[in-house]
Each structure stands twice: as C-alpha cells, then as structure tokens.
Amino acid sequence: MEQLKVFDENYTYLRDENRDKVHREGLWHETFHCWLVDNQFVYIQKRSAVKKDFPGLFDITAAGHILSTETVADGIREVEEELGIEVDLTKLHSKGVVQDSIKLPQFTDCEFSNIFLYDSTFTARNFTLQREEVESVHVVERKALIDLFSNEIKIVKCVNIFDGTLAEIGLIDFVPHERNYFEQVAHILKG
C-alpha cells in the first residue's frame, strides 16, 4: 500500500498515511504536476479509459503522488513512467505549489500540487505511453489553453500527436480541478 506524507492546510507535515485513507478522509498530501511546453504548444494527456479515477478525461501532461519516501524532485519519475520519455533535469522548472481540492462522493483529493514546466523538444516518436495510465498525448496552442483556463473562451482545439486527429474540448473534458488551480496554471503558462 502506497504511503503518502500528510500535511495540515498550511503545508506543515503531520504524519504518513496510506493512500486510500488519505483520499477517503480528504487529507492534504503532495503531488507532482509536470506540464510539457514549447514556445507555441502545451502538451496534455488523455487519461486511459481503464483508469479508476477520471477515465478518458484530459489532464496535466504527467502527474502523480509523491510517496512518503520521496522528495518533490523524485516526482519526475511520473513523467518517465507515464510517457516513457527521458527527462533532462536542466529543462525542468519549478513554478511553486498550488493547493487543489477535488471533492467527489467516493473520495476527496486535497493536494499540494508542485507545479513544474518542462521545455519540450519531443516528437511523437520519443513517447512510449504507459497504456493503463495514458491513452494519448495532445498539443494545444499555449495562448488558447491559457484563455480556456482563465475562462475567457469555452473551447480549444487539440491535436493528437500520434495520429493528427483534431478534437475540440472544454474544461468539462478535463479532470475537475478547482477553478483556482486552472487560473494559477494559466498564470504560470503566461510566464
């Protein structure tokens, strides 16, 4: 059973708990959120249809829980595991922590989300997806995603990097992060 560090709402460490209890009781814990970006695009993932939580929804390029035995920087393993890409740490930039809480009937996910941007030069052939986690990777124009996350527009176009298919998506197609989370990420993406 995965063990996570538990914090109070001020990000003060309290103890370690198993992941199920953390979500069942809505305890604050740390996550690693990595957004792959280049000058024009932001890469987003479409979650696998077999995922327990939020199957088939769009989300952060790569993200995951930071285990109790890990540092925040160790969270980079999520990028390598989910996307199968080799990470160059000199291209990884910490952008701070955003509190995010997702409340659903079956669980409450209260996260201290450690946000990172990664300067991407990847092409489709660089990715080897962990299929039980990620269905596909798409690119969205950076300005359009900023506008969507800032609630200035309702729909953006994204392109599947593997087969070139185009889709139009809105916030309803994303994992339901808090409005504040989306606004903070928009601010970060503006640079």
Rank of each mutant, 00 (worst) to 15 (best):
F107E: 04
D173V: 09
I169R: 12
S113N: 11
H138K: 06
H93Y: 03
G164Q: 12
Y43P: 07
T123R: 13
V50P: 04
H138T: 07
A62H: 02
S113C: 13
I188T: 02
F54L: 13
T121A: 09
Q184W: 01
D100Y: 01
M1W: 05
N151C: 08
A186P: 02
E9G: 07
D38S: 14
Q184G: 01
T123L: 14
R179A: 11
K143D: 14
S150W: 05
L89Y: 08
K91C: 10
E132K: 14
R47V: 03
M1T: 10
K5I: 02
V156L: 12
E111M: 12
L145K: 09
K95L: 02
V37Y: 08
A186Q: 04
V159K: 15
K190C: 04
T90K: 15
D16N: 15
T31G: 07
E135Y: 12
T12N: 15
A73R: 05
I146S: 08
S101G: 06
V87Q: 13
L89G: 03
T128M: 15
H23D: 08
K21H: 13
W35S: 11
A167G: 03
F174Q: 07
F41W: 13
I66S: 06
I188M: 02
V175P: 07
E82M: 02
Q130Y: 10
P55H: 07
E86S: 15
V137D: 00
Q40E: 15
V87F: 14
I155S: 11
L57W: 08
Q40N: 15
E78N: 12
W28C: 10
I85T: 01
T121L: 09
E168P: 05
A73G: 04
G191K: 01
H65M: 11
E178Q: 14
K143Y: 06
I161V: 06
S120I: 04
T12Y: 09
I146F: 05
V72I: 15
Q40L: 14
T108W: 08
K157H: 12
L14Q: 13
F7I: 12
C110V: 13
E133V: 12
L104M: 15
E82G: 03
L92I: 04
V72M: 08
V97F: 05
L4P: 00
Q99I: 13
E17G: 00
Y13Q: 07
A186V: 02
V42T: 04
I155D: 14
Q130T: 06
E2I: 11
D20V: 00
F127H: 02
V87C: 11
E70V: 08
L67W: 04
I172M: 06
D147L: 09
L4Y: 00
D119M: 05
V139S: 07
E2Q: 10
